[in-house]
Design a protein around this nucleic acid. Sequence first.
RNA 1: GUGGGUAUAGCUUAGUAGGUUAAAGCGCCAGUUUGUGGCACUGGAGACCGUCGGUUCGAAUCCGAUUAUCCACCCCA
Length: 425
Amino acid sequence: MKPIIKAAKGTRDILPEESCKWQFLENLLSSEAAIFGFSQIRTPVFEHTELFLRSVGETSDVVQKEMYTFTDKGGRSITLRPEGTAGKVRALIEHALYNRGFPIKLYYFDSCYRYEKPQAGRFREFYQFGAEIYGSASPIADAELIYMLCSIFSRLRIERLSLEINSIGCQECRSEYHKALYDYFDKQKMHLCDTCLNRLERNPMRILDCKNPNCNGLIENAPIILNFICKPCEDHFKQVKNYLEIANIAYTVNPKIVRGLDYYTRTVFEFKFEDMCSKNTVCGGGRYDKLLEELGTAPTPALGFGMGIERLLMLLENQGIKLPSLEACDLYIATIGENSRILALNLAKIAREASIKTEYDLVERSLKAQMKYADKIGAKLVLVLGDEELEKKQASLKNMKTGELSPIHLDDEFFVDLLKIQTKI
RNA sequence: GUGGGUAUAGCUUAGUAGGUUAAAGCGCCAGUUUGUGGCACUGGAGACCGUCGGUUCGAAUCCGAUUAUCCACCCCA
């Protein structure tokens, strides 16, 4: 026996019992996006590395240590997408979708790839559902995106999900804030933990999120971004909050929310849920008004979010919300001998044309074993074709729920109708 | 990248002061009236105890390394 090959680290197979749940989620998310006027876009799994360097940001952790980057045979540097937004913006620009008139509203359901150490709710290949709005600078667009998310969560009957929002301002006000923050922590360097010392140089805002008790004391009195954002950013944020209140959406302002991708500006938000031990983000997003410019097109305001499907499933599991399981079979045709098998082919064809989910024996098992199998797959009806009845064009139909056996005439033109009625019972 | 836990049949697990054919439940297959499922009973297949090396007369059991997996941190969805 040769050694078996297993799935690569951080990847996993979605087996039938689970894939039906994925299918359900994908349908629900897509149809909700459609209700909100979003249309689907599908972009390649891999892109030129340059795209992510310029959008996600060269200093971000995602780019620095988590990308699947390789050189293809043509010598090009290629990267498997670590997130969904960059590719969508690239496509928007490449196909000049902005000429179709604003707003452009797109959604996607994509696999993404990051070279990380796997753990709960985190994989190297993971799926994101996301939506983007291009061409609106208005705070109503920020609210609209959040409305859609709330609508999705309520359709899934998810509760106890907290929405945290923040504004990280525009580039101008943020750089001022960075300066203030740097000065504040720099004076107290000796009290910071090692990771925070590192953060101080790379992204001082991250220090605000540190769990180390020593750093925590300093955080209390640290400057807050909301005191530094400029008047337009402040107004924008105020209005977003206002629109949320109008829609009766509960939120908390969390000035510590810092998104890890460099392209965010102004509004940022996260939907979190409490797990046994830690808080988990199921969905995160925000505005990225400078990104389109950065990728070489006219300045265009934009915003979007990404939702982790694996985390959504975790959350559903956590709240005991059941998703549909495998669909049962309507009709199983049990056969005894070759003649009845040939007849089964024809009957199955008729039934299937009428969209009745039909199966018959493929492994040449005994009748008893076929009955067992029919039971296992949850067949509602079993049609038993025996040699004796075959001559008289008859068979017996068993209702698996009641155990009731009834004779059925195979020539009956109402044969299919009969099955249809019976499978509905 | 840092730290910790775990590795025994398809699944869930038992088995350690080191001792010969490694155990159970579930699942799978077959049988208990030769043509009828669920329940019960009987039997069967299925594991070189993650891998490599070491200690020992002898290792699933002790030691080391390695790989995989889980969890936490970093970071993120």
